[in-house]
Design a protein around this nucleic acid. Structure first.
Lengths: 178, 178, 178, 178
DNA sequence: AATGAATGAGATTTCATTCAT
DNA sequence: TATGAATGAAATCTCATTCAT
């Protein structure tokens, strides 16, 4: 098991740092290279596509979402559990612009992300099942629809002022109630 | 006031028809020209930017939305009026992919569109005011937030199966209820 | 029959002029663009491959070779006719470094070049036939072999001092004599 | 004086073997490494430049050329001696594509090659001197010109069918005759 | 007004060489 | 010494927009 080379680690870091300051939508690997003061080829070697880079940028946040989700699952109250889940998702998706894309992508670059997404969805299913059993959420709301709704609220939130986020989230939370 | 030349009118029609069959997001004027069997320059003369073309494509649907909105306004029941408004918006936005962009754009190409958007928003304000007075909708939902929420649901609907649209719309309608 | 656009003609000229000052072997379209102070895309549009540009550069010289060949054919003396043919070929191939490649290429970019090469070879055949009939050249020397030998002498001449060219040519002329 | 490590010797062999199957012109050290199933760095360590590798590949053939040259020199007939010299050169240059480059290179990588080239040229000078004295070859043909002519015939031979080689060689032999 | 070849900036890809392990 | 991923300069290619006709 070889250690990654130190210069490689450093360059990867520079690339990620540079990319972080750029809007995720329409990310150009060229711009990243210039900002990172690194050859374009290096960026392309590390991240063959813009999506690979977006995924890498979003991975931390995705893992934090997974952590918060696990914590939410541990909540004994089914309704509170679900609300924490949704809040965590929305908050982190708003924090990291590329996360929605990563969550919705059919293919993942890294196995780590793939596994995280799998577990995340499994947790959502579990939480929803419990919520259904407790009768606190409409039966026609399943994990996929809920995820799409969260993405919808994220979209709405990006159009609105930051101060309005809670209002928009509130609409979602009330709207899915049984 | 000269009549527009007949070939000009014909070309405009060909361009719009061709563009209609293309996805609105990332519309390339080049592709439109090829499909319309018209020079690129001609497309650029008619529509200096992709947005101008998207707006032109969406105008019909926008005017239909305005019609449905007027009809909704005429509904004596405040709750029904609001629901018809929202249904009309969502349905037509889903029908015409470029409409959301046009509705949210700060600047409009044509005065016709500008005026339609102005009236539309005024009607929404009126309907919401009536709904607030009747106590059928939460007070923190104003016209802008509602429009953003509809855009959010449109987004969610595009991610989901067509059959799920009513469910998603239902969440919005219940979510904004007082 | 549309006139070519003046700017197009000007750019084509700049590109050819710039390329003329560069070694034909390993010609990079990029370098040409920089030298010609023209976008790379423009060079690629005019000349999709380096070979297309090399051919364009060599066309003038090829046509001059054809002229000299026609004149040589007109010489009543079979031996003199053949010698003039060979001299013209060697001289012009040495003058224009890309000409050998063009002459030997199986595929031609422009019909003009294709036709010129066809006529050239036909003339060589005719001159050789006359020379064979007159018994002034070995029977195992046909047009193709002769062309390859001229290319060989060109190669030798490029390795040697310019002053040695006549000596090398002399070896060829004597070597093919009956 | 340490023995070279056995794996070093093995790698050198693998590299040479792999390179032998590749065209000499435009030899890429990367391709060689892949074929040899060896790291690129290893190829670069053994052969810092493509020319070094080409020279190494051609060395055996160069030494065989030297052997045949010595034998030719031993021929008592000046004309036969010269012809054997030329035949050997042409044959081996055609056999080993990189040999011409090595023979013409101003700088040599290995002293062995340098010395072989020095002796070879000296032999050619000697044979030519004898041929001049015997009046069997034109006085304007010296060793350098002759080498260039052989390279020229090699070039011609590569353009022609293998069956034509003797004809081309014949032209050279007759062409240099006094 | 219509045309579409031409433009060239900039995106992506290749590849000879380096260098940390 | 061997390794080969990493490097980044420079190659090729794409494409939105312009502009001479």
């Amino acid at each position: 098991m070889a250690e990654p080379r130190s210069d490689v680690v450093r360059n990867r870091g520079r690339i990620l740092e540079a990319a972080r300051s750029l809007p995720r939508a329409g990310l150009r690997l060229n711009d990243v290279a210039r900002l990172a003061e690194v050859g374009v080829g290096t960026v392309y070697r590390h991240f063959p596509t813009a999506h690979a880079l977006v995924e890498a940028l979003a991975t931390d946040t995705l893992l934090r979402m997974l952590d918060l989700t696990r914590a939410a699952v541990a909540d004994p109250d089914p309704a509170a559990s679900l609300e924490r889940l949704i809040r965590a998702a929305l908050e982190l998706q708003l924090e990291e612009g590329g996360l929605q894309t990563v969550l919705l992508a059919a293919e993942d670059e890294s196995p780590e992300v793939h596994e995280a997404k799998r577990e995340l969805l499994a947790r959502w299913h579990a939480v929803l099942e419990r919520a259904h059993a407790a009768g606190v959420v409409r039966r026609d709301i399943d994990a996929e629809r809920l995820q799409h709704l969260v993405c919808g609220v994220e979209h709405a939130a990006r159009l609105s002022a930051a101060a309005d986020r809670d209002i928009l989230l509130g609409v979602l939370l009330r709207g899915i109630r049984a």
